[in-house]
Amino acid sequence: MSRGPDAATLLVRSLETDSHRAGCPARVMESNWTRWASATFCGARHELSLDAEMSPELDLWLDALPEADLPLRRHLVADIVVTSVRRAEGIATIAIEALTVEE
């Protein structure tokens, strides 16, 4: 029996859904992850690249993202950081790093 989508897939879906709700639809262009573990937790480190049209709503969404509640089934987003935003010709290319842990 399949356990369903992995944390990377869930994170991509959650970011895209959350950006749409915020009025600044973003699309994940690239997503890479590596397994991660500490003495008490297991999870993954994620690096994502998103594209979105530049707008005040996008700026607000990016500012609020580190505190956002991004629901992932059987996982928690322990940390999420916008590491860079490149703007050109009306499009923002956003780099994000995240840490998810298994519940």
Rank of each mutant, 00 (worst) to 15 (best):
A52L: 04
P56Y: 08
E97C: 09
S84P: 02
V77W: 00
T100S: 11
R74D: 15
E53G: 11
L58V: 07
L70S: 03
A8Q: 14
D69H: 10
I80N: 08
L11E: 03
C24L: 06
T9I: 13
D6N: 14
R35H: 12
I80Y: 06
M29I: 14
V77H: 00
I94E: 00
R21I: 06
W33Q: 15
L65V: 03
L76A: 13
V77S: 02
P56A: 15
M54F: 05
L50G: 03
A37V: 10
R27W: 12
R45V: 12
L76R: 10
T100A: 06
T40Q: 14
E47K: 07
A26G: 10
L62N: 01
P71L: 09
R74C: 12
V101F: 07
I94A: 02
L50T: 06
S14H: 00
F41H: 14
E16K: 01
D6Q: 07
E67I: 01
M1W: 09
L60V: 09
R27P: 00
L99W: 02
R3K: 13
P25N: 05
L48W: 01
L15H: 04
V28Q: 04
L11R: 00
I91G: 06
M29F: 06
G4N: 07
E89M: 09
L70V: 09
T40V: 15
E53M: 10
S49H: 10
A39E: 14
D6F: 02
T93H: 09
D59G: 03
E30D: 13
I80H: 03
G90D: 05
A8K: 10
I96E: 01
A88L: 14
M1V: 13
E30N: 10
L99K: 10
L58C: 04
E47R: 11
A44R: 09
L48Y: 07
M1R: 06
C42R: 08
M1C: 05
V101G: 00
S31K: 03
V85G: 07
R3L: 14
S49Q: 15
A64C: 08
T9Y: 12
A64D: 15
L65T: 01
G4H: 02
R35Q: 13
E103V: 09
L62T: 00
L99H: 09
W33D: 14
V101M: 11
A68N: 09
L76Y: 15
P66Q: 06
V77N: 01
L65Y: 03
A95W: 00
E16M: 13
I96M: 06
A8V: 08
R87N: 12
P5R: 10
S31E: 04
A44M: 09
V28S: 06
T100Y: 00
T93P: 01
L65N: 01
A7L: 03
T34M: 12
L72C: 04
S49G: 06
A22E: 11
I91C: 05
L60Q: 13
A64F: 02
L11S: 03
R73G: 08
A64K: 12
A37S: 14
L50F: 03
H75D: 11
